[in-house]
Design a protein around this nucleic acid. Structure first.
Lengths: 344, 344
DNA sequence: TTGTACGCGTTATCAA
DNA sequence: TTGATAACGCGTACAA
């Protein structure tokens, strides 16, 4: 039914080997023969079957992307950069969306086995300790993006420094009581992002000599609802914070929603700082820590291609910097007169 | 290197045919033999090679998704629903992002040829008249989502009715001068969405006996910038509109931004209505026409699976309804006193 | 420079 | 119920 390399060979009056050589524009093929073959190819509208090709070459020119929560704005930005970078390199991308531990384990177990993909990009996740050995044994080229493991080339952003500068900027503006809304570490997800961001917060506090108040630290879902409820808790404290730093923009938006509901002036009554730098933050003029999402995706693909071209490269760690965007939701705290004495 | 079906056969002391039968749990295989084979499989940690399998079956269990502008919130929502529905049916999805006519044509020409995918889902795009014949000839099962062509099963939303009710609701609230920001029909993209939405607007106008003012209709990019500049034009008119209806939420957000810049009260001075119902609209409390994006994606996959199971099904057209969400950006126009006489 | 023949790992066919 | 073997479409040694 479909036209094969044999049909082309017959039409061109040559052997299949010659057609194959023309196809892989390798070897020396006499120009006149090449012409004959090429004309036959276009005449028959022939295209080689990638499946049969993979069968013999062992490569598919398909890359797998295991990604946590595709719908997160962050994931989308990274993914888009990946799709376009991959397409430039003539690779296709198949997406495995992970929204639960079971899904993650399923993919981590199955994928390295099959030789359906030439390589695996893992975004915002990492193989856990149980799956890691079988992962390594399978020897599938793997690149981690927004996640770190010493076993694989990893492209990460400097979460610690990002949150450090974010909190430091709030402190420099005169805030002392700063609420921190962290993201939960889902199941085994090892979203180390959360830990790193926490460490940065601590560092900024301790440098400024601020004692960490456990009441001002909460971990919630990486959602607006999470941000809303955490903000409610903070703001119903007897001594509420004058600023809230959230580990993601969506959570920060939740904080904004709570502030609006409580008729709080932002940034007058409450400064709000997010983390991510998704488009939404720009629209809402939310101060935030901008992540280089596009670079993350592009570098992920670039490193993968390197790996594919040179299988035994040693893992490397690429760390990208964040950029602090001070927009409209952060300002020095208003001086409040309370019980007759000045209180900041 | 990798363990094959022969290794399993040898280990189990049977022929490869038997192993294959067990694998495809077909036929009658004696229970004791089945046990032997299964134990050998797990002992050797064997998994069949999907490539070799595709080689003979001609099917890959991979679906291609050609999608316009993956990063649009709309696309992301649809895509996510597709990924999860496909995974339930044990299909993988490979994404082809289209952001230009060249890309679109490239995919439309290449993909049907290769047998790399079992079927093609086309989102917010449609094969143009030149590519259509070769498309049909290739006979690759194809489902259009958010796009319509009589040649293929199409899952669309009722754009016309959606925009009709949106404008009608504005008129019912007392608006007479309503600006309409449409999306551009990119290149050949045949984003018929734009046309349909325009038709709905016209219908609402003519039903209410409102004469269509060409000054109040503009087509821009489906972006915030597009919305901003269109709004600026409308609002600098001698007789500016009291309401603006945008063909997408992002454009409506652009309108909101312009309104904010001009210190216009929304909805007091200006009502704003969007179209899409993406998360952003909820956050901004934007009135909008909600599209059933998840259903769109799920139905797309469901119809594709039907098609795959029964190749010669005739194309069908599924039309999903929208839902009008009147939130905080729409209200009756304020009565203005102008030149001593009441003007609405 | 070119053609022939083998092999990739599986499923399907057929005979036993 | 099972085993042997022929495809599937291509790349590539090897021989010519």
């Amino acid at each position: 039914m479909a036209v094969t390399i044999y049909d082309v060979a017959r039409a061109a009056g040559v052997g299949v080997g010659t057609v194959s050589r023309v196809l892989n524009n390798s070897q020396a093929v006499k120009d006149t023969t090449r012409e004959k073959v090429l004309s036959a190819i276009s005449r028959l509208n022939y295209a080689p079957d990638p499946i049969a090709r993979s069968m013999i070459t062992g490569r598919t020119r398909v890359l797998g992307v295991i990604i946590a929560f595709v719908t997160r704005n962050f994931s989308v930005e990274v993914l888009r950069a990946m799709v376009s970078a991959a397409s430039r390199e003539d690779y296709e991308l198949v997406i495995y969306n992970v929204e639960s531990d079971e899904q993650r384990d399923h993919y981590f177990n199955q994928l390295p086995m099959r030789r359906r993909v030439d390589g695996l990009l893992i975004v915002s996740l990492r193989p856990n300790d149980e799956t890691l050995p079988s992962f390594l044994k399978a020897g599938l080229p793997t690149v981690l993006v927004d996640a770190y493991s010493p076993a694989f080339t990893s492209v990460v952003i400097n979460n610690m420094e990002g949150s450090y500068y974010a909190v430091k900027s709030l402190i420099d503006q005169g805030h002392h009581r700063i609420g921190f809304i962290n993201g939960t570490v889902e199941g085994n997800f090892k979203f180390n992002q959360a830990n790193d961001r926490l460490i940065g917060v601590h560092r900024a506090f301790s440098e400024a000599g601020i004692v960490f108040d456990p009441d001002l630290m909460l971990a919630t879902d990486w959602t607006r609802a999470g941000g809303r409820s955490a903000a409610e808790q903070f703001l119903s404290l007897p001594d509420p914070p004058t600023a809230i730093f959230a580990a993601s923009d969506v959570q920060a938006v939740g904080v904004m929603e709570t502030a609006r509901r409580l008729k709080l002036d932002v940034p007058g009554d409450l400064s709000i700082m997010g983390f991510d730098g998704v488009e939404l933050s720009e629209i809402l003029e939310l101060s935030t820590v901008q992540q280089p999402m596009q670079e993350l995706g592009e570098l992920g693909i670039a490193k993968m291609v390197e790996l594919l071209e040179n299988e035994n490269k040693t893992p490397e760690l690429i760390r990208l910097d964040t950029f602090l965007l001070e927009r409209r939701t952060t300002a020095p705290p208003k001086i409040k007169i309370l019980n007759g004495k000045v209180k900041s």
